[in-house]
Write a protein that binds this DNA or RNA. Structure first.
Lengths: 359, 359
DNA sequence: CTGAAAGCGCTTACAG
DNA sequence: CTGAAAGCGCTTACAG
């Protein structure tokens, strides 16, 4: 709120010698309703007093805030930034919201109980909210299903929970990636998963299992490491997977940070990437191009997803069609770089593809 | 704003059979003023109707919004996230604000003219604002000097502009780093600067020049590349500096992203780091540990700076002492990793230090 | 201990 | 073309 001394609409009205209604009209650009001289006088008065409408008062009178909430759960990671995903989606939201003259408010949920959620989100301080990759088992998702204001979730959700959302088709992407790996000749493909509360992690793992199956391979328990999307879990995971028998010749990582951690662990073990082990990232974060070898990874259009979420929300606020339950899905694209290659002993992908019973 | 149907304080009052004043009191925790039975009744009514106070109305009545603005200029970078600095500072602000029950609103300034600034920031929708590393020549800084609401700037400013701020002592850090480099024996130290509108970049460069002078070295124009804090400028800069004569044996980079770009360019040129050229980063971003070789860099306590900024702002809002003009300075610390070493031909730092007139 | 009333700074039918 | 008045949903002296 501005300091007490700020001029109000009454001051402007008095200064211009008109009513507050007139000032309000003029300043809202409904100047066609008024005499040119009046409009001019009001404009000048506002200018001279350097009047600026109090947004809080406008909001109350208009029964809308023109602000979007961006809700992230920070209790797990501790940090908002821990997730590059969040930041890029936020950027997209900021872009679209800015164009549409909406403000954005960040809600950083430290504890995900229904009390807190209601207090922080459903308190009339925002017209709609985007939930960024919430844990699928928390109060936030539960609340969202019955929320009275428009909600869009950015990320994945278990089947059966229907909240309007925008997501990336990571299943197809993983399927694609695994197929490519098997075509290169890989038969022992490991995975370092994300945390089970992040539904995207679950879906990716499921897709991995299905891809394996459709390539006639079986999922081996010792080829799976339960990570949590952190660099550290990448390090630990890769180190552990290297002790498995059979040892994986390729590892699918939960995200690029995990992949870089894996790279580091393998480097310390003097295991060469991609000659001995292929590494596949996820996200196509800056680091994917900055690390060595550069990561083969799956690019997700985070920014666009944010833009879309904001667009959906603003459309809903402004009386557009009701938000659809069917998610809006963006494709993930496999970006082939240096961290993947045929497994040791095989060099030509073509040869490998028809190789039959390579062990 | 919440949908029309939401219960208001009047509904609760009616339901509990008391006045709205009583409901207001009780729900604000001033229950000591009331009979236990009344308190109980009000609580239950609020619960049953799942009433939640409308924050906009509270804000207007209380003449405060309990929200902090975080203002970033995005016209240069296009993206909020382009700057890791911003995100980590934001995290710190979010942390402190959350504890203090303040909300935070992001203002992403696409054009930095005084109109836009006033409209977006000084519109009564926030009680105070943190300006994150604004360009020193823009309307935002000009506005901040006369702003009616509490302002804290996070970052650097030219001398003579007095806005309360929190900053890092990058001058001392650079001085320190250059001294260390000269002690290692480096005599030709290049620099890839940041953009001149970012005052931190100017200050770092000045510190670099002074450190050179105090080591008895002269600044050579061909050893300076005008970058802009991007990866691309790191690539281009390093490539260009390698054509200089004399060729630098060490390069100070504007930030870690720039340093990684430099690493990449040198890699392509088959110039080894740190054997032939030492690279010094700035920030200690994740990538500094993720790239190869790991970067020697200067760590900045971004998160703490954000926390401090929020603390100052909230103190000011709540009637604490007026914000001091003297900046609050955090130290930057030199983190020595693998990207720096003595220049070619010199191996022992000790020997180099007293080496006298090494060319 | 409780409530009637004024007020926060706007917007918006409505009447003229 | 313009203005008086009600209202948005709260808070807060103030009186009782």
């Amino acid at each position: 709120m501005r300091p007490q001394g700020s001029p109000t609409i009454r001051d402007v009205a008095k200064h211009a010698g008109v009513s507050v209604a007139t000032v309000s009209h003029v300043l809202q650009g409904k100047s066609s309703l008024h005499a040119a001289a009046t409009v001019e006088r009001v404009r000048r008065s506002a200018e001279e007093l350097s009047y600026r409408p109090n947004r809080t008062a406008q909001n109350l009178a208009r029964r809308q805030t023109r602000t979007l909430g961006v809700v992230v759960e920070t209790m797990t990671t501790g940090r908002f930034t821990a997730n590059a995903f969040c930041v890029e989606v936020l950027d997209g939201i900021l872009d679209f919201a800015g164009e549409a003259d909406y403000q954005v408010k960040i809600v950083s949920l430290k504890c995900n109980d229904s009390q807190t959620v209601a207090q922080c989100v459903d308190n009339g301080s925002m017209d709609a909210a985007a939930l960024i990759a919430p844990n699928s088992d928390g109060a936030l998702v539960a609340w969202a299903q019955t929320a009275a204001l428009p909600i869009v979730l950015v990320g994945s959700l278990p089947d059966g929970i229907d909240i309007p959302r925008v997501d990336v088709d990571d299943e197809a992407a993983i399927l694609n990636a695994v197929r490519w790996l098997t075509e290169l000749g890989h038969r022992h493909i490991g995975i370092i998963t994300g945390p089970p509360t992040q539904w995207s992690a679950v879906r990716r793992e499921n897709a991995y299992a299905r891809a394996l199956a459709s390539a006639g391979l079986e999922a081996i328990a010792s080829l799976r490491y339960a990570g949590d999307y952190t660099y550290a879990s990448g390090q630990a995971g890769a180190a552990e997977l290297m002790t498995a028998d059979p040892r994986p010749t390729a590892i699918i990582c939960g995200n690029d940070g995990v992949a870089v951690g894996a790279l580091e662990a393998l480097h310390r073990l003097h295991i060469r990437v991609p000659d001995e082990v292929s590494i596949l990232g996820f996200d196509d974060h800056d680091v994917a191009r900055w690390c060595r070898p550069q990561l083969t990874t799956i690019r997700q259009p985070f920014h666009e997803m944010g833009v879309k979420a904001a667009e959906l929300l603003i459309t809903a606020i402004e009386g557009g069609p009701v938000l659809r339950k069917e998610p809006i899905i963006f494709p993930g694209v496999l970006v082939r770089r240096r961290s993947t290659a045929p497994p040791p002993g095989l060099s030509a992908p073509r040869g490998a593809r028809r190789g039959g019973s390579v062990p």
